Simulated scan of single mutants.
Amino acid sequence: MKNFLLLFRADSTQAAKRSPEEMQASTKKWMDWIGSIAAQNKLVDRGNRLEHTGKVLRGNNVVTDGPFTEIKETLGGYTMVSAGSLEEAVEMANGCPILQMGGSVEVREISVL
């Protein structure tokens, strides 16, 4: 089995438009989806949401604010799963609730050095 990182991207302006009831329903969908992966014993790390603010470090110690708000799609969080192949990890990601909200899931294998 290999480990894969699922990176969740979405339109950051959409979350602010949801009602408390919609947010509660969304949270339940996320918990059910994560729970289904955990029930298969393939959840390595539940992950977390990421804050919308941060810093970007570039060469020569150049530090700037970021991610930049003019970019509509932002990285919102991550989860780590265990799968036999990239295709299996993609299949797990296919059930992610963010896809129903117009977002995307980037699936990346984690290489062990």
Rank of each mutant, 00 (worst) to 15 (best):
K17M: 09
E106N: 00
C96V: 04
A25T: 01
G54Q: 08
A15K: 09
N41F: 01
S111W: 09
N94K: 12
K2R: 07
E87G: 03
T69L: 07
A93S: 08
L57V: 14
L5I: 03
E109W: 04
K2Q: 10
I71V: 14
N60W: 04
D45H: 10
L43I: 01
G103Y: 05
M92Y: 06
Y78Q: 05
G76I: 08
P20G: 03
T74G: 14
E70T: 15
T79S: 14
L5F: 00
I71L: 13
V112D: 08
W33H: 01
F68L: 15
N60M: 09
S36A: 11
L43F: 07
G59V: 14
S12A: 15
Y78R: 07
S85K: 04
A83P: 01
L86T: 08
T27P: 03
M92A: 05
E109K: 10
K29I: 07
T53W: 10
A93R: 05
C96F: 00
G54A: 07
L113I: 15
E21Q: 05
G95W: 07
Q100Y: 11
A38K: 13
E51H: 08
V81H: 03
G47R: 01
D11R: 05
N61L: 12
E109V: 08
T53Q: 12
Q14E: 15
I34P: 06
N94W: 02
Q14M: 13
G103Q: 05
R46N: 10
G76T: 13
D45Q: 09
S82R: 13
K29R: 13
S85H: 09
T53I: 10
I110F: 02
G103N: 07
E70Q: 14
E73M: 13
Y78C: 14
Y78E: 07
R108G: 00
Y78S: 09
A39N: 09
L99N: 05
S26A: 15
S36Y: 04
C96L: 00
A25S: 00
I34H: 07
L5M: 12
G59T: 09
N61G: 11
S19K: 06
G102T: 07
E70K: 11
G103M: 06
Q40V: 00
I37K: 02
L57Y: 10
A89D: 02
S82G: 10
I110Q: 06
M101N: 07
D32R: 05
L57H: 11
M1V: 13
L113P: 08
Q24I: 04
H52Q: 06
I98W: 11
F4S: 03
M101K: 05
I98F: 15
V105K: 00
R49C: 07
T69A: 14
I37P: 03
P20H: 03
A83L: 00
E70I: 15
C96H: 01
D65I: 11
L6W: 02
D45I: 10
F8C: 07
T13C: 04
S82Q: 15
L43S: 06
G84W: 02
M92S: 03
R108V: 01
P67S: 13
E109Y: 04
V44L: 05
M23C: 09
S111F: 07
I98V: 15
R18L: 13
